[in-house]
Computed example of a mutant assay.
Amino acid sequence: MRQPSSLLDLLPREVRGSGAWIAVTTGESNAEVFRREDGWAYAKCIGPGGIDALDAECRRIEWLSGTGIPGPDVGHWSASDRGACLVTTAVPGVPASRVSAVELRRAWPSITDMLRRLHALPAPDCPFDRSLARTFRLAEDVVGRGAVNADFLPHEHRHTPPSELLAELRPQLERRLLQETHDRVVCHGDACLPNLMLDPRTAECTGLIDLGRLGTADRYADIALLLASSRETWRDEDEAGCADDEFFRSYDIETVDRERLRFYLDLDPLTW
C-alpha cells in the first residue's frame, strides 16, 4: 500500500511494515504525524529544518520513560539530510480535551495527581532546560521575527501588537526569575488538555504526550496552561472556578498567585 508521505521512507521497511499509516490532522505541530492503522504507534516526520527539535523531543521521551511517569516510548529514530522520523508507542486512552465536562470533572483528581507527580520528580536529575530566561529569549525571537501565531493569542489580545504584549510582561521578569529559583520543577511545557490522555471508562489519566517542551521551569507555567485549557470544556465561569479551587486544594497550594498565573499564560502564546 502506498504510504501518504515520502518522509516515511526514512523508516526501515521492518519498522514501516506493510500496513497503512493514517495522517493525523489534529494538533498544532509543524511536523507530519501519522498513526499506524492498528493504533499502537505514531510516526512524527519532519523536514531538515526540524531535525534538531524532533531529536530533542526524542531525548525527552526517552528520559521521561525512565522516571515512572507514564508516556510514550521511543520505538525508532531515523534521520538523514532529507529529514527525520520518530516512531513512538501510543499512550492508551483519549485526549482530555475530547471528553465532556462531566467526564472531565471525574478525571480532574487524576489529572491533578499526574501533574503533581511530574512536578515532584527531582529537578536536578532532569537534563532539559525550560527556564524562564530561556523562554523569554524565545519569545523575544518569535516576536522580533514577526512570527507570533495570532490564533494562539486570547481574543482580547489579538488586536494588540505582540511587541506591546511582550513589553507589558518585561517589568515582571526579574520578580518571576527570582520566584523560579525557589520553585523550579520538571514541567511538561505544554500542559494543555490535548496532551493528557484519559481512560474514559475509569476517568484515570493514563499518561502525557507531546513532550517536546519538557524541562525544568516554574510549576506555574504548567498550571496556568492546564487551567486555561480546561475552560474550553468548562465554559461556565462558576464551574471553571470550582475546578480551579479543587485543583489547588488537591495540589496543596494554599495561597494562589493569580498574577503569576497570568504572566505565564500571557507569555506562552508569544513562544510558538
Rank of each mutant, 00 (worst) to 15 (best):
D141G: 09
V185P: 00
R98H: 14
T135D: 07
P171A: 10
P127Q: 09
A123D: 04
G83D: 01
P122A: 10
L132I: 07
L86V: 08
G146Y: 05
L196N: 02
G146S: 07
S131H: 05
L208H: 00
A107I: 06
S163W: 04
E164H: 12
D199M: 10
P124E: 11
D141A: 14
Q179H: 14
R158H: 08
A90C: 12
M114F: 06
R98W: 11
A101M: 06
F128L: 11
L173K: 02
V186A: 03
V148R: 03
H157Q: 13
A90Q: 11
F128K: 10
S100D: 13
E156D: 14
L118T: 00
S131C: 03
C85M: 09
V94Y: 07
P194G: 02
M114A: 15
V91K: 05
D183L: 13
P92L: 04
R145Y: 10
G146A: 10
C126N: 11
R184W: 05
R106T: 08
R105S: 12
A147C: 10
R82W: 12
E156H: 13
L165A: 04
D190Y: 00
V186D: 02
H188S: 02
C192E: 00
G207P: 01
L208W: 01
R82I: 05
R170P: 09
P109V: 06
P122L: 09
R106M: 13
R145T: 07
A107T: 05
D151Y: 11
I209Q: 01
A107D: 06
R98P: 01
R170Q: 15
P162H: 06
L196K: 05
D81R: 15
R82M: 07
C187G: 00
V91S: 03
E140V: 08
T202D: 10
R105W: 14
L118Y: 03
L118P: 02
P154V: 06
T112F: 09
P154Y: 06
L132N: 03
T160V: 15
D183E: 14
P161Y: 08
L177R: 13
R137M: 11
L153S: 08
L169P: 02
P127F: 09
L177S: 12
W108A: 01
M114I: 05
H155Q: 12
P122I: 06
C126E: 06
